[in-house]
Design a protein around this nucleic acid. Structure first.
Lengths: 217, 217
DNA sequence: AAATATTATTGATATATCTCAATATTTTTT
DNA sequence: AAAAAATATTGAGATATATCAATAATATTT
């Protein structure tokens, strides 16, 4: 059973989708699709963790969010230019189901209640982007880093202590700064006793403080 | 007749919408709705120019885009929390039609082809936000200012010479910088012969150069 | 027409953050 | 196990941009 927006499909539609979907596996570091490539399939993540990122000029990318198992990935190319507008890369071993985008469109056409649910899903994504914009416009790096750490803890790993596959560069790309700055800020937070951190093991010690930094720092 | 996504409605639906819509006028500077307020109506701009902006902490706002006559404004609160996630303020004398959001929802439910068109419209907005994020992540102010001037010329005023109601603060809020910086950059562009500018009158003299600055500067 | 408020402009200074470069550590390949 | 590659760390220095403050110009109110 799907835990994403597909759960609102009618049983026959769901059956059809189950029939046509096919699995593809990705190793850590492999790319599911690249920004600019044609959008031919909707993707449902069955297992794994991935990063959604915008590729700016060479050397620079912006990580918009991470995707966990259960989530669905479409993209704004749907019914516009049918291209991908971001790239999607596995951070861990990942299993994904591919669903033909035309079959997905049929579901929307045949079931306007589902279409409304899909619109709601798109709107949630839109709200997420507004928040990302707001965070990125924070003048201070501290606030952006605090926001990233809280995001990882609350939204992704759902624990105050976690082990991540993200590199320092990834954390920097999530926080709109250079990798050197991300390293220095993590060190500062550590020295201030707000977090513990050894390599890829993080523990948030003072969430109140982090929230305060995110909002005011 | 509507020039926005509403033109895809069936004739009877269109008639219904025409019946229930009602006009409201706004003077320059007046706010149509505020971020956080309940979303009760979809709005169609009949005449005028408006700014869509995120209110960050006090003193700081981010202008996402401008809205011209003919355009429709919904917002991602639809079918999520039914709140406005941005504020909308008139830059010029504006006439807007208000359409009850529940009637709009009925249109989507009764007409899945329309729902698909609406999804396409939402996706175009999503692509626009990605571009905004990319521009804001430009490290150099020059590139952000060039991008704003090109946006005003190409997307809004559709001319290389234009008179704007935007203040220097507005231009700064569109370009992710302080008003002092926006003033200094406009002066620099003027001194370099890339633009002409007297108060609110702008003329782009060297678009090639501006595009180059936007992409590489 | 004068007074007030708002917006625009300019300059000096402070500082946050990037860049570059060197070294250390970890991971991958041979 | 050694070599190579990739990633992480630290420091010094450069610089883009914000902040603050003072003045000028424009718009609004009285």
């Amino acid at each position: 059973m799907f835990t994403n927006v597909l759960r609102y499909l009618e049983p026959e539609q769901l059956k059809k989708i189950e029939e046509i979907k096919f699995p593809v596996n990705f190793a850590k570091g492999e790319t599911i699709f690249k920004q600019g490539a044609p959008l031919t399939h909707i993707i449902v993540i069955n297992k794994g963790l991935l990063k959604v990122y915008l590729e700016d000029r060479e050397q620079h990318s912006i990580i918009l969010r991470l995707i966990k198992s259960g989530e669905i990935v479409g993209g704004p190319g749907f019914h516009t230019d049918y291209r991908h507008h971001f790239s999607l890369t596995a951070l861990e071993e990942t299993e994904a189901f591919f669903i033909d985008v035309m079959q997905f469109e049929n579901c929307l056409l045949q079931n306007s209640t589902f279409a409304i649910k899909f619109i709601a899903y798109l709107n949630k994504g839109h709200i997420g982007l507004y928040n990302k914009l707001r965070v990125f416009e924070h003048k201070h790096m501290n606030g952006r880093m605090a926001s990233t750490l809280l995001y990882l803890s609350e939204q992704i790993y759902e624990a105050e202590e976690f082990e991540t596959e993200l590199s320092r560069q990834d954390i920097a790309d999530m926080s709109a700064m250079t990798k050197e700055s991300s390293i220095r800020l993590i060190k500062n937070f550590k020295d201030s006793g707000i977090i513990e951190c050894n390599n890829n093991h993080f523990k948030l010690l003072d969430k109140e403080h982090l929230i305060n930094i995110m909002e005011n720092g």
